[in-house]
Amino acid sequence: MIKRFFLTLALSFGLMSPSFAAGTIPFSLSQQFDSLGKPLANCFFYIIQAGTTSTPQSAYQDSALTQALPNPMRCDASGRLPQFFLADGLIKVRIADKNGVAQAYPNGANGIDNIQVIGPSGGGGGGGGGPDPTTLLQTGHMELFYGSGTLSGFVRCNGRTIGSSVSGATERANADTSALFNYLWGADANLVVSGGRGASAAADFAANKTITLPDCRGRTIAGLDDMGNAAAGRLTSSYFGAVATTLGAVGGAESQTLTIAQMPSHYHSASILDPGHTHPFSAAQFAAGAFGISGSSAQQVNLASSATASATTGVRVTSSNGLDTTNSAGGGLPHPIVAPTILTTIYIKL
């Protein structure tokens, strides 16, 4: 009888004690980005009661909901949030960058409201998964950014090197370059690996080798001429200067010096007009008595005017370049062939 009483009492207290079901949301362990795809390093992550403007909602680092996390939470240097757990129900979140500037949301909303906490008691069947990886920037993704310095989560495509923390790499020497090292090692066999390529990318990274990054300095980017289709022939080795179906191939130049064969067909008129000419002359007139003629038989002699026969001179053009040529003109210097261009920095995702 006494045992039954205490058992009933214990059950009563158990039923009266608060019970919290733990769950999470897809933001847990996810990396946050701004509208340009740049990681939100050291960002603030606010968890708010659903339907309110700013009333805090507790988050915990354990599924038993006993070890509270600060609110707001802070992302790490790569913009990634820690793992956290929430009580079952709906919540609201808001994100601000490291300077406290709130991030933009659709329709100007002040955060994202009415997010369902996913967990065993919330019908999620084992907890919420992370974000769809296809919606995030993948390793090897190239990004333009209007700046010139380093960018968290990325390295610059500047022809320098990446590798492990003791590799001596010149762009970034850190363990977080492993994924990009492996990707580039497999994607482009022309990228130089210090000491030569070994059995695998993983082996080379473990051996503290470096790999050269794509070199986009002073270069525009164009699509491969085939990209999974037949080659379009818009870029050919004759003019591009490299095989345009090879990833990472480089070609082109900022200037061009024309050869004679590349100049449009033309001529320089240099004719001389020589229509021919004559030299006129008039014969002298002799009066009576000239040449010893005298008397009544002496007569005045008159000779008619005349001229020499017409003839050309055979004049020809000559110059320092030779007979029948004109003097050269122009300097033979290269001329610019650069399209209108604006410069930014090109990054590649670690």
Rank of each mutant, 00 (worst) to 15 (best):
I2P: 06
L7Y: 02
T8R: 10
L9K: 04
L9I: 08
A10K: 06
L11G: 12
L11W: 10
L15M: 15
M16E: 08
S19P: 00
F20R: 14
A21I: 02
P26C: 02
F27I: 13
S28R: 10
L29I: 05
S30K: 02
F33Q: 08
D34M: 09
G37C: 08
P39N: 03
P39I: 02
A41S: 15
Y46K: 05
Q57H: 14
S63W: 03
L65P: 00
A68S: 13
A68T: 15
L69F: 06
P70W: 07
N71Q: 06
P82I: 02
Q83F: 02
F84L: 10
F84Q: 07
L86E: 02
A87I: 03
D88K: 14
V101Y: 03
A102N: 10
G108F: 00
A109M: 14
G111W: 04
N114F: 15
I115F: 08
V117M: 13
I118H: 05
G119W: 03
P120Y: 09
G124Y: 04
G125F: 05
G128E: 06
D132K: 07
D132I: 12
T134I: 11
T135P: 00
F145N: 15
F145L: 09
G147R: 03
S148C: 00
G149N: 12
G149P: 02
S152M: 02
R156Q: 08
S164W: 01
A173N: 08
N174S: 15
A175M: 06
S178Y: 07
Y183K: 10
Y183G: 05
G186M: 08
V192G: 01
V193M: 06
R197I: 07
S200R: 12
A202H: 03
D204T: 03
D204R: 05
A206Y: 02
A206F: 03
A207W: 02
N208H: 09
N208L: 01
K209C: 04
I211E: 00
P214L: 01
R219A: 06
N229F: 09
N229Y: 09
S237W: 00
A242R: 08
V243N: 15
G252Y: 04
L258N: 12
T259M: 07
T259Q: 12
M263E: 14
M263N: 12
H268P: 00
S269K: 13
I272W: 03
G276H: 12
H279Y: 05
S282N: 15
S282A: 14
A283H: 10
A288R: 13
G289Q: 09
A290T: 08
F291I: 06
A298H: 04
Q299K: 10
V301N: 04
L303F: 04
A304M: 10
T308D: 03
T312W: 01
N321A: 14
S328V: 09
A329C: 03
L333E: 12
H335N: 08
P336R: 11
T341D: 09
T341F: 01
T341C: 07
L350G: 00
